[in-house]
Design a protein around this nucleic acid. Structure first.
Ligand SMILES: [Mn+2]
Ligand SMILES: [Mn+2]
Ligand SMILES: [Mn+2]
Ligand SMILES: [Mn+2]
Lengths: 222, 222
DNA sequence: ATTAATTTTTAGGTTAGTCTAAAAATAAAA
DNA sequence: TTTTATTTTTAGACTAACCTAAAAATTAAT
């Protein structure tokens, strides 16, 4: 039961995120890109995490989280997202400012702390970016959602999340008065550049393909 | 303007605490004892901190914080104590449980975060143990206080702080219904073991010298 | 003023986590 | 099915933080 270092935790999260909750293996290069560290160093760390029983690693085959590794990664995601809720709901941070701070806060090591925080925030199910928050047992809802770019002409949907978390993107959405809960109707689709003419609440505006590919939408017919 | 690591921060705090705010130099051995690290390692770190302009170090002469080092240490104390207030006031932790968690939280690196937290907590002046909290400019009140062991016979004082922060001591105080704000009157002093017979609110009880030497008291005549 | 005790520094070593360059394995193309 | 390109691993090095044991400096006692 060795301690898991902050560095190791960041790798676990990267592996979790690259292999999307579970299932497919994460490759050396994918992790290298995700956390901006050389592939050689990633191989090194794979060996160490494997040694600790947090991942299954076979040379040239990529890695998968073990049950233990998955549990730890899930707890990190829980902590990250709960802290984001705290920062936005209680300290009035903007949703674009919280990620980097949560990236540090997620490593604070206290179950008591995180469970009390959860209670204090009234057990939120989603973070400020619409991402689901695992509960104390690691269970979280997977919401049925599609990308705005996949929404059919003349249909209406509600924004429930963002794929891209970059501050620049989130600030752009703020300026467009687009946020979680916004209602969007597709008025027209332009094939030559995949841009969209949409109606948001009362206003009409044009969204680029890039924007449409980074907004998660929920439609009425679940 | 190099980054200051978590480890370096812990040394800065230790130096700050050993040299009591400012003034006298902190010796290698004192720091070694304070943070439970070998004297050889402490010497190593003194060189590095000195290199970074955070302390003045001359061989065999101990160290003193520079202005820059003092500012950084003061900010750490501010963060530590504000987080402690948060944990007790908002998350309902007991005052004996918060120190270790704050020991981690104090290293989160965001001025925006700490200043918003300060506001959220309504700019508290003292932490749950009665220790003063530096403001955003590093200024903090030094309260006039004495130890309970120094209080004269038949005098009355109010508990305003604790010297010892160990959970066992704080739990003992809880069990004795003693906390910040408690009023204590000295009824009798026993010379042979320095124990005291005191009155707290309505009840009479005996306190050992050890307890009396770890409670800070404020008397009416400031 | 010597000697003895204590404190501090140096020397040499270890581990975690990183890097670059080169070698080996795998996957893609011809 | 060879050849070529890409991915992954290995080899060798570095830095931050630690350690123990030994040397040097300071302080305290005789
Ligand atoms: Mn992180
Ligand atoms: Mn988020
Ligand atoms: Mn600390
Ligand atoms: Mn405190």
């Amino acid at each position: 039961m060795k301690k898991i270092s902050q560095t190791e935790e960041n790798y676990l999260k990267a592996i979790f995120s690259v292999s999307e909750s579970k299932g497919k293996a994460a490759s050396t290069n994918e992790i290298s890109k995700e956390i901006q560290i050389s592939a050689a160093s990633v191989t090194d760390m794979f060996k160490r995490l494997s040694e600790k029983g947090l991942i299954d690693y076979k040379k040239h085959k990529g890695v998968k989280l073990t049950e233990k590794g998955n549990q730890h990664a899930t707890k990190l995601v829980r902590k990250h997202r709960l802290w984001e809720v705290f920062l936005v709901e209680k300290l009035n941070f903007d949703w674009g400012e919280v990620h980097d701070i949560a990236e540090e806060l997620e490593h604070i090591n206290s179950d008591e702390l995180i469970n009390r925080l959860d209670k204090y925030l009234d057990y939120p199910k989603f973070d400020p970016h619409g991402d689901p928050i695992p509960d104390a047992d690691g269970i979280f809802e997977i919401r049925s959602q599609i990308l705005l770019s996949e929404l059919d002409l003349e249909k209406t949907g509600i924004v429930v999340g963002v794929q891209e978390h970059a501050p620049a993107f989130l600030e752009y959405l703020d300026r467009m008065k687009l946020g979680l809960g916004s209602s969007i109707t597709i008025l027209e689709k332009f094939d030559f550049d995949q841009s969209l003419r949409v109606k948001i609440e009362k206003k009409e505006l044009t969204l680029t393909a890039k924007v449409a590919q980074n907004l998660f939408i929920q439609t009425k017919e679940k």
